[in-house]
Design a protein around this nucleic acid. Sequence first.
DNA 1: CGTGCGATCGTG
DNA 2: ACGATCGCACGA
Length: 203
Amino acid sequence: MDKLPKNFYQRNAVVVAKELLGKNLVHRVGAATISGKIVEVEAYVGAVDKAAHSYNSRRTPRTEVMFGPGGYAYIYFIYGMYYCMNVVTGPENDGQAVLIRALEPAGGVDQMAKNRFGKSQGELTKKQRILLTNGPGKLCSALGITKENYGEDLTGDRLYIGDDNEPKKFQVVSSKRINIGYAQEAQDYLWRFYIKENPYISK
DNA sequence: CGTGCGATCGTG
DNA sequence: ACGATCGCACGA
């Protein structure tokens, strides 16, 4: 599986977001390798995007990595209990990123089941298998992604995205982004993308 | 230093 | 529909 290189990420967030669909997010932690196919993403295009944490070039310790070059992980803690993972995109100082919103489990499913429900893969109901990674907080929990991964180099060996080079035979659906009611006109932009009819799309 | 709230999720 | 739960961003 080819690891996506820096120049893949150092482009516009909307372009990168669409191309991330069908790619494999991989987290190596301890002896485990946990991975899933990216099936849903949202683009945050940077300082001009009212929905983005980097809006108006808001530079804080939290958003700092967004203003670096593309190809690094932006992890944030939300609602006092969940982590969400973004891929920083674009050139330096733009503040662009793509939020990973849902995965289809691929490798290390037993570890995912333990991380999410404290049980083994074999004990999962069919519904629970869907619930492993069908949301941005859930997938971080399943893959064991935390603030420890903040700023991590996505061309490294711990947290990266790979392309299996299989032909991509799916349709991409565009829609409004989720839960950004504070973003005024930006909430209507069609910057959420997902694989049509994939069962692991968030609700 | 005080406070209001969030790119969510699970339960009722 | 609502509560959990806490770090962050911002204003005083």
